[in-house]
Design a protein around this nucleic acid. Structure first.
Length: 286
DNA sequence: CCTAGAACCTGCGAGC
DNA sequence: TGCTCGCAGGTTCTAG
């Protein structure tokens, strides 16, 4: 999916096109899309009916729509291939349309959850004091959150016996970072993905965090990253950051710093892209 | 308690 | 043409 910048692009779209509208009804077309809603599809649809949507929020790759006056929110995760689209009622159903939400107004548009691989989904949850859905209490603040604690993150890295890319993808340490932006930030920081986290000095950690923020902000400024129609904003439009990637997907292409051919390594059922010269492997693999 | 790896899905492009 | 394989931006569960 969509990593933080892409999810934030979607959140902004929901803010503009869906916030403050009242739900008329919801239709669940595929039960797997609401599997996190334990009470089931019918309960999910019924509980949305008649409620007004508040201001959409996001933490990491999760976003949620508060239902006013209920103490609950519709939590969304896009998984690998999920999309939230605002479409005219009459637009033909997408091939992987999973959930449809109609509104009690005359704007003529509806909210659609479309998801090819069904790793994503919607569900309804109680919110805690700060408005966070209770089931994502374990998700760390993301690096664009003003309350993200850089020092605490560094201490956590020192405490762990794992490698830096695994840590960047650990949503309970830092949220919103996925495979693309991890590789991009590591390339910018000249760090190998298998560098043990316990060896990072405080300045190194802070520098890495700076690169994570820079690359995410740069992606956000151009609407996120997309290689194809799978990653789009609520209007179905793709972002342009794929043109600015320095590491991800550049196997065999010259490193933009030193011209050494970039490499791809199988890693955790996916890939890591890096420059073998700028990003030297650690001496001892943990 | 902690970490690494597999499982969960569908579709697409490459290679035979 | 059609089959199989590898691959895809994530999370979560299990085994060790």
């Amino acid at each position: 999916m969509p990593e933080l910048p892409e999810v934030e692009v979607v959140r902004r779209g929901l803010q503009r096109w869906v916030a403050h509208r009242t739900v008329a009804d919801a239709v669940v077309l595929h039960p797997r899309a609401v599997r996190r809603h334990i009470a089931g599809a019918d309960d999910f649809a019924h509980r949305l009916q008649g409620h007004r949507i508040g201001t959409p929020s996001r933490r990491g790759k999760y976003l949620w729509l508060p239902l006013e006056d209920t103490g609950q929110a519709v939590l969304a995760h896009l998984g690998m291939s999920g999309q939230l689209l605002v479409q005219p009622h009459e637009a033909p159903a997408e091939k992987h349309l999973r959930i449809r939400v109609r509104f009690a107004d005359a704007l003529g548009t509806e909210l659609r959850f479309v998801d090819q691989r069904t790793f994503g989904g919607l569900s309804l949850h109680d919110t805690t004091g700060d408005g966070l859905p209770d089931v994502i209490a374990h998700i760390a603040r993301d690096p664009l959150d003003p309350l993200f604690d850089d020092e605490a993150f560094h201490r956590a890295l020192r405490r762990k016996r794992t490698t830096i890319k695994r840590a960047l993808l650990d949503q309970s340490l830092i949220s919103g970072v996925g495979n693309i932006y991890a590789d991009e930030a590591l390339w910018r920081a000249r760090l190998h993905y298998e560098r043990p986290t316990a060896t990072l000095t405080r300045p190194r950690t802070l520098e890495l965090l700076g690169h994570v923020r820079d690359v995410m902000n740069a992606a956000l400024a151009v609407g996120g990253t997309s290689f194809d129609s799978l990653y789009v904003n609520v209007n179905g439009e793709s972002g342009y950051f794929d043109r600015s990637l320095d590491a991800y997907g550049r196997e065999g292409l010259p490193c933009r710093r030193c011209a050494t051919p970039m490499r791809r390594r199988p890693w955790m059922n996916r890939s890591s892209y890096f420059c073998p010269k700028c990003q030297r492997p650690p001496r001892i693999t943990p």
